[in-house]
Amino acid sequence: MARLVGLIALLFLALPATAQERKEVDLALVLAIDISGSIDPDEARLQRQGYVEAFNDPVIMRAILGGNHGRIAVAYFEWSDSWIQKLLIDWTLLDSEAAIADFRRRLSDAPISISRRTSISGAIRYAIPMYGRSPYDADRKVLDISGDGSNNDGGLVTETRHDALKERIIINGLPIMNGRPNPFGFPAEDDLDKYYLHCVTGGPRSFVEVARSFEDFPRAIRKKLLQEVADIGPLNDFDIGELGTTRDGVQLAQSGSGGARRTVKADDDYTRFVRPEYELGCDVGERRSRDFWQRRFGVTPD
């Protein structure tokens, strides 16, 4: 018996350090932020500052630290064209107020850049393997995508969404409804909220939180982030402003929405948790892009 115990101990010591030190976290959250050409530098700064402020909110901080494991893991990247994804912060453990403050500082100090096209599918494709190389074991895996336009590059978003859902990654969306044509002349997308709901999001309790403008983005991201961290799912009438004390954050993280809801099972097929087909078609962004380029320049983009 002693010999067997000794062999087990030797095998454990032979494991890589990462295998021995993997920590359990309540949530592995990837934040994916649109920096396509429809977003100007001021709007990009508003987005970035919205996330910085959200991670400084006392309710959200207490929710992060108040779950079963008392910690979450977060990564942050910005995206545009199908081949452009900029990883600003790789997997980071948020297990204390000091760790959260350091994450805010790194995010605030990172440079801001703008690219060209809008590839939500490229962002999802980039994010999927991030979870596989995460050094943490997560109870939940969530991909948080924000943007101000529909997919127009890099393949159909529904196909890459399906790939993510097969890996049990929940996708939530934050469409920014800015109500104006973008700098290239593309018309405003008044149906972007419906597009995100039907074509981008998926998985158990996935949801869309709408920002009615870039100025509204800080409010929207605070509300959305709290729902994701606390796993309270979609609540149309939920208002973070009603949570006046840090105690509420702990309660939300520990008890969820507080009401009866369907329990997610280990063998659930996440690909079944999608909304019905979008009436305009989930390739509407690609079609609008082709039509625009054809009318304006007499060519279609590659």
Rank of each mutant, 00 (worst) to 15 (best):
G50A: 06
A63T: 09
Y126H: 15
W79Q: 02
M61L: 10
A99C: 02
F77H: 12
R140I: 01
Y51L: 14
R140Q: 15
I124F: 11
R106M: 10
G122A: 05
I84K: 13
R125K: 15
G66K: 11
P175D: 06
Y126C: 02
I120E: 04
E78G: 01
A110W: 09
R168E: 15
D139I: 06
I145P: 07
Q49I: 12
T160V: 15
I169P: 08
L156Q: 12
S150W: 06
S150Y: 07
R106N: 08
D102P: 00
L46Y: 10
E97G: 13
R116Q: 11
G149Q: 07
M61A: 15
A63W: 08
A54D: 10
A101I: 02
L174H: 00
I112K: 01
I112R: 05
Y131P: 02
L93Q: 08
A110H: 13
I124R: 08
L165V: 06
A123K: 04
V142F: 02
T92Y: 04
N151M: 07
E97L: 13
S96D: 11
A63G: 12
G70N: 08
Q85R: 13
A127G: 06
P58E: 11
S134K: 05
D109W: 02
P111R: 07
S96F: 11
A127I: 05
R71L: 01
T118L: 12
Y51M: 12
I84G: 00
D139S: 14
K141N: 15
N56I: 00
I112D: 02
D139V: 12
V74M: 12
S80N: 03
R116C: 07
N152W: 04
A98Q: 15
I64M: 13
D139N: 11
D148S: 14
R133F: 10
D144M: 10
D95Q: 11
A44K: 01
P58K: 06
R71N: 13
T92K: 09
I84V: 14
I171A: 05
H69I: 00
M130V: 00
A123Q: 04
L88T: 14
P58F: 11
F77L: 07
A127N: 08
S134V: 10
G66Y: 12
A110E: 05
V157A: 10
A63D: 09
